[in-house]
Design a protein around this nucleic acid. Sequence first.
DNA 1: GGTGAAACGTAGGCCGT
DNA 2: ACGGCCTACGTTTCACC
Lengths: 147, 147
Amino acid sequence: MDRFDERILRELKLDGRLSNVLLAERIGLSPSATLRRVQELEKSDVIAGYRAVLNPAQCGIEFIAYVSIGLSNHSKASQLHFEEAISVAKEVVECHNITGSSEYLLRVETKNLAAYKQFHMDVIGNIPQVNAVATSVVMDSPKDERA
Amino acid sequence: MDRFDERILRELKLDGRLSNVLLAERIGLSPSATLRRVQELEKSDVIAGYRAVLNPAQCGIEFIAYVSIGLSNHSKASQLHFEEAISVAKEVVECHNITGSSEYLLRVETKNLAAYKQFHMDVIGNIPQVNAVATSVVMDSPKDERA
DNA sequence: GGTGAAACGTAGGCCGT
DNA sequence: ACGGCCTACGTTTCACC
């Protein structure tokens, strides 16, 4: 992992479809050397994958919220049950197990407020271990470099 | 926006580097028709871009936290000043303006706890408008579909 | 790490429906 | 207006230096 690898990662983070020849030009190496480095970064799992980034507004997503969840008890069984219920909920895009006053932080994306209410009732309301719920609606994201 | 477009987006979200011919096979269209649809989705900003997804653990990131920030006053000037300070902080990967008991939610990624302490002092501690800070350390992310 | 050549994919014109 | 076919062009990828 040297300067070249770092530049490769920087360019590929900005444009995952950058062609190998253009990438080679930008980092100042030949295409073949560049390709070998990229393949090595992929094989060693430094690059986990490539994804198209969609524009939520253009995809019918008009409601985004972070939801902190507190469980009524902290047993392993409770946590696994909760995570299982969350894993099948398509509205939940992220689920983080965090320290602090609540156990989980979710990012939830829905079509609109009505769809969120539905999610709140049908999914959150149906997990018996859930004790406390606090919804923070996202109004704007002045910085968002989610890879 | 029909079934074909939806399938294109689903495949490209999973693999942003999928070649056009393979994509065409998977959705059951010819390569040229597929390419035209993809280009249209890019032009109309449904596809915002493509990114390489890095593995934080393999990139020397061993500390991830969500930080909620409350400002001492809610003037436009205060918010703009805060957002400006955040935009140049490389440790801040996301900054969301939210409703609820605090104004901002940040996702902060650093090499380790010591680097986070440094960030906390040098960046957060130097923004006079910051009133309240609550750090929630990410222990695990059982679901993470960040694009 | 660089070079060259073959295999492969892209992208645009053209025609049929 | 939209999908399929064909072809020139560029890119990827590999054995070899």
